[in-house]
């Protein structure tokens, strides 16, 4: 029975310092991968900035920013129910039976009004299906639209500005005073407390409002996961 002795491998001398470096490389490489995943997979990277193309190029800059339409003119259910509705085509046609009746961009709206088939608007803000969220509970207790949706009045194409992550929800449930305002100002995109728009002034107003109106947002699991 013949047996082949393994060939002797002789490393060159310059390999010696590299062996020591390899240990450091493994540690550094691991940290690198961890940082890359944490940075790249964070909701700030993956969720913020989502701005889907819509079937009709509806501009909030024009309708809200310039015409001054209140959010609730279209999103009528926001104060009464969990879901802030996308308006029915009939709401568009309140004006567009008289305004820009030949616009090619509005053709899907006219078609929807004639046929009764809904316009396939693309949802921008979508919470995971295991999360319960109620718009009316927030809007009627002093959380403004702008806190979560950003300056929609300057958006030609609506985009997501908040992560809508659980850490983000809980941060506000623990410190709501930064976002509180009188409920009648909920849809005001540029509201600031009497002392100005600084963080200190907002917190000062919010602390007092919180006391006066007993705003104590729960942080139990079952608040949102029910």
């Amino acid at each position: 029975m013949s047996w082949n002795a393994p060939q002797k491998v002789i490393f060159p001398r310059w390999v010696d310092p590299l062996v020591k470096l390899a240990g450091a490389g493994a540690v550094l490489g691991g940290a690198y991968v961890a940082m890359l995943v944490a940075y790249g997979a964070s909701p700030k990277t993956l969720d913020v900035g989502y701005a889907p193309e819509q079937p009709v190029p509806y501009s909030h800059t024009l309708h809200v920013g310039q015409l001054g339409l209140d959010c609730r003119y279209c999103h009528t259910s926001v104060e009464r129910g969990p879901h802030a509705n996308v308006p029915p085509t009939a709401t568009c046609m309140n004006c567009h039976t008289k305004v820009l009746t030949e616009s090619p961009q509005l053709a899907p709206v006219r078609e929807s009004a004639q046929t009764g088939k809904p316009i396939p608007w693309v949802r921008v803000h979508d919470l995971p299906d295991y999360v319960y969220f109620d718009h009316s509970a927030h809007v009627t207790r002093g959380i403004g639209c702008v806190s979560c949706h950003g300056r929609v009045d300057t958006m030609d194409i609506v985009q997501q500005v908040a992560t809508l992550s659980m850490a983000w929800c809980i941060d506000c449930h623990r410190h709501p005073e930064r976002h509180l305002r009188p409920p009648e100002e909920a849809t005001n995109m540029t509201w600031a407390p009497p002392g100005g728009g600084s963080v200190e002034a907002r917190e000062a107003f919010g602390r007092q409002f919180r006391l006066d109106h007993k705003i104590n947002p729960p942080t139990d699991c079952s608040t949102c996961h029910r």
Binding site: L36, Y39, G40, A41, K44, T45, L46, D47, V48, G49, Y50, A51, P52, E53, P128, D129, Y130, I157, Q159
Partner: peptide, 24 residues
């Protein structure tokens, strides 16, 4: 690349690596 993605808006669908039960 990631830093750029964080400051630009995109019409592409959001990427959820761990889907859990996001969409039921």
């Amino acid at each position: 690349v990631i830093a750029r993605a964080r400051v630009t808006a995109s019409p592409d669908p959001r990427i959820h690596i761990i889907r859990d039960m996001d969409n039921q």
